[in-house]
C-alpha cells in the first residue's frame, strides 16, 4: 500500500509545462476563438498514436507512458472543447483564480437578473408538483431553456471579443456570468431528465 507515486513529470507533461498551455498540444493559437473542427481532428489524430490500445503489445513502461499521455490528451481536449472551461483555462493561465466557487459578482443588475431567473425556474419546478400536464410543462421548460441558451451564447461572444482586445478584468467578469448561466443550464437539464419520468 505504501508505494511510490509514478514520476509526476512525463514527456508530454514536460512539453506542456514548457509551453504552459494545452493549446500547444493541438498546435492552436492561445485564444478563446478556436476552430473546433480542427481541434477535434487533431485530438483524434493524437489518440490514434497514443491511445493505450496502440501499446498493448509493448513493455509495461511504454504502456504506462501511453496511458498517462492519452489521459493528458483527453483532459486537454475536454478543457478546450468546452466554451466555459476554455475561458476559465485562459484566465487561469493569466493568473486569475477562475474557479466558479471563488467567483462572486458585485454587478447589481446582474444579481437582480440572477434572482429573477432562479425564481422563474422554481416556478416551473413548482408546477411540476401541481400535476400540470407534462406536455405543457415541458414546453415551458423548453422555452426557458432556449432563452438561457441564447443569453449564454451572447456572453460567450462578449468573452471572445473582450479577451481578444486584451481586456482581462472585463473578461473575468463576463466569465462569472457565463459560470452562472452554465450552472442554470445544468439545473434545467436536470429538471428535464426528471420530467422524463412522467411521460
Amino acid at each position: 500500500m505504501w508505494r511510490e507515486l509514478p514520476r509526476l513529470v512525463y514527456s508530454l507533461t514536460l512539453q506542456v509545462i514548457k509551453s504552459k498551455s494545452y493549446f500547444a498540444i493541438f498546435s492552436l493559437e492561445m485564444d478563446w476563438a478556436i476552430d473546433l473542427l480542427l481541434l477535434k481532428s487533431r485530438y483524434l489524430n493524437l489518440q490514434k498514436q497514443f491511445h493505450p490500445d496502440k501499446f498493448l503489445m509493448k513493455s509495461s513502461l511504454e504502456k504506462r507512458l501511453a496511458m498517462q499521455t492519452a489521459s493528458l490528451i483527453n483532459d486537454a481536449y475536454d478543457t478546450l472543447a468546452s466554451p466555459l472551461k476554455r475561458a476559465q483555462y485562459l484566465l487561469d493561465l493569466r493568473g486569475y483564480d477562475a474557479q466558479p466557487e471563488r467567483h462572486t459578482s458585485c454587478d447589481g443588475l446582474f444579481l437582480m437578473e440572477q434572482i429573477e431567473l432562479r425564481e422563474e425556474l422554481e416556478m416551473i419546478e413548482g408546477q411540476n408538483q401541481n400535476q400540470n400536464t407534462c406536455k405543457d410543462l415541458s414546453e415551458r421548460l423548453g422555452s426557458f431553456s432556449t432563452k438561457i441558451q441564447h443569453r449564454y451564447e451572447s456572453l460567450q461572444n462578449d468573452f471572445s471579443e473582450s479577451y481578444a482586445k486584451g481586456l482581462l478584468d472585463n473578461s473575468f467578469s463576463v466569465l462569472g456570468k457565463m459560470q452562472f448561466f452554465a450552472k442554470l443550464l445544468d439545473q434545467v437539464e436536470d429538471l428535464e431528465s426528471r420530467l422524463i419520468i412522467c411521460d
Binding site: Y10, S11, L12, L14, Q15, A24, I25, F26, S27, R42, N45, L46, Q49, F50, S59, S60, L61, E62, L65, A66, T69
Partner: peptide
C-alpha cells in the same frame, strides 16, 4: 526493461514531438 526505461522515455518523447511538429506543419 529497467535498463531500457530512459531509452523508452526518450523515444516516446520524440514521437510526441514528431506528432506535434506534424500538426504545426499542417
Amino acid at each position: 526493461a529497467k535498463t531500457s526505461e530512459s531509452f523508452a522515455e526518450r523515444r516516446m518523447n520524440k514521437s510526441i514531438q514528431l506528432a506535434l511538429a506534424g500538426q504545426t506543419l499542417e
